[in-house]
Design a protein around this nucleic acid. Structure first.
Lengths: 311, 311
DNA sequence: GCGAGCCACAACCGCACGTTGTGCGAATAG
DNA sequence: CTATTCGCACAACGTGCGGTTGTGGCTCGC
């Protein structure tokens, strides 16, 4: 690719070869094999050099794009001045949507999204600088956080009931938490000890629900498959969580109220982290999260959630 | 890259090696050299396979992007179902802006923009299917077009005078063509025999202007440099043509009137071209170009331009 | 018509990359 | 606690890819 671009820029193989510190014959060979692999002629050879064919012209910007992509890939792991590295608990839940929102507002900033095993790993990674910011629920009080780590509540995500069409509550316009008592709720794929498991454990304990928050995870497809067929099993899903399922599954989202359980997402960062984008990032979410410290009357969140301040 | 992605997906080198039809040792070596080149560890080795590090997680989407870019690059020259290939007379003038407009309206369609030597080459390329559509001024009547080739006028681009700050006409709010008589107009970088040269020749002949449409082309920078310093030399520039020049050049755009010379851009395509995007493309510009067949009273365009129909 | 400039083909060669063979550590079963 | 399995890393080795040198042919300009 580099050879192709150099030759296209120079208009001749000799000069390109000099730029690349190889012989003209090597450039000729490289272009020949590239043309053979692609199955088209990229240059027309003339007596005074070479000229791009139409195919070559069409190919050139893609070749440049490839080198840019390579550069970005290398930059993503380069220590110092890499893209802002963000940890989210899952790529499907609300924080991922917030990230897309941020990206729309700041299209020039580069983000790398990763997912760590649990909150402890996230705290350690934030403190060490391996990641710059994390979206998590924070279950421990500020006094027990690692040194220099700050948190701020940025989003309360209401939960809804997710059922198949034959479920008893499928047709309800809204359901209270009390109505869920006795129904089996299944939320697989959540590792024990994570803040997700804590949240659902606390929710189940507070209202006497039956929530299987942990258990074998055969993938989202399997969960949806079982829900679609079951008349007794339901699941909980964040209001902004995007699952894609086929229409014929006919799954239903039923709002919860009295109270509505909300999941408290916080921003986690190190206050000495010098990354230039971090301040922009925090400002962006600070402007979108006011009043979260005062619990809404109609909602429920765990006790540990109310100990977190907003930015 | 492929090896890295395969290993990340499989979670172990053995299986990745099987997928790639190489030995486990080869995969191990490839990953090791990739890690050495990048200077970071991408996997943590465990007794039951490997797991991505944070750096590995951040790197993974970039690696996938690199392969997608490679795929797009190869597709750009693959005969059959490649991106719509569009020829423009220059990447700086109005059609390029129209293309960006189309791309905004249809973000999913892929475009490859190329620039052919002259209109004859464009006609031949359109007829042979090497390119799908061309933006050009058409100087020949429809009866003399190659078989199956259709044209449609889509944009009239008004021209302006471009001068340096010390030029006699620099401070004028507007200038008539009659006022330009006797002034030297210099438009380098236009090959003789092209439709551009024809246009400026006709313009000069119609109003008795002095236009050097051809001549040595030392690049845009040189033209701007000369204009900025000269009190006698000016150039013509399309109203929508985007040149970037430093502020201290202090160049002026002076509108022309009585009449305003407009450059007639046409769409050129082959009516049997089966490319799926071509219809969308023509529809897009058809809706944006009404009434061009009736010449505006205050404008001038060459005689051959009025022979072209709108889509 | 001749030299200059540039690309393609041929022959040669070194090293990078894949192979086979082996060792080691961790997890699992008995 | 030991035996076995599983998966990765290191070492030695050979082949082929990709570089080099050498040369010929084509076109353009003086």
């Amino acid at each position: 690719m580099r050879t192709f671009i150099a030759a296209a820029d120079a208009g001749q193989f000799q000069e390109a070869a000099a730029d690349l510190s190889v012989t003209q014959q090597a450039v000729s060979k490289r272009i020949a094999t590239l043309e053979r692999d692609l199955g088209v002629r990229l240059f027309t050879r003339t007596a005074r050099g070479v000229q791009l064919t139409i195919d070559g012209q069409a190919f050139l910007p893609h070749a440049r794009g490839l080198l840019r992509a390579e550069e970005r890939a290398a930059a993503s792991v380069r220590p110092g001045r890499r893209a802002l590295r963000v940890d989210v608990i899952s790529r499907r839940v609300a924080p991922a949507a917030l990230l897309r929102d941020f990206h729309r507002a700041h299209p020039d900033t580069e983000l790398d999204v990763v997912t760590l095993f649990d909150a402890d790993a996230a705290f350690a990674a934030v403190q060490s600088g391996m990641i710059d910011v994390s979206f998590r629920a924070v279950t421990v009080p500020a006094s027990q956080l690692p040194d220099g780590v700050r948190t701020a509540r940025v989003l309360d995500e209401p939960h809804q009931l997710l059922t198949g069409p034959r479920h008893e509550l499928a047709a309800a316009h809204a359901v209270t938490l009390a109505q869920l008592v006795g129904h089996r709720i299944w939320i697989p794929g959540i590792a024990p000890g994570t803040e997700w498991a804590t949240y659902y454990d606390d929710l189940a304990a507070a209202f006497g629900l039956t929530i299987d928050a942990i258990g074998p995870n055969f993938g989202t497809d399997h969960l949806l498959d079982v829900l679609a067929d079951s008349s007794t099993l339901a699941s909980l899903i964040g209001q902004q969580t995007r699952f894609l399922w086929p229409d014929y599954y006919d799954l239903r989202r039923v709002p919860l109220h009295d109270p509505t359980p909300v999941y408290p997402h916080s921003l986690i960062w190190h206050h000495e982290n010098p990354h230039p984008v971090l301040a922009t990032f925090r400002d962006h979410f600070r402007s979108r999260s006011t009043g979260l410290e005062r619990p809404d009357a109609g909602t429920w969140s765990p006790k540990w959630a109310s100990r977190q301040a907003t930015p």
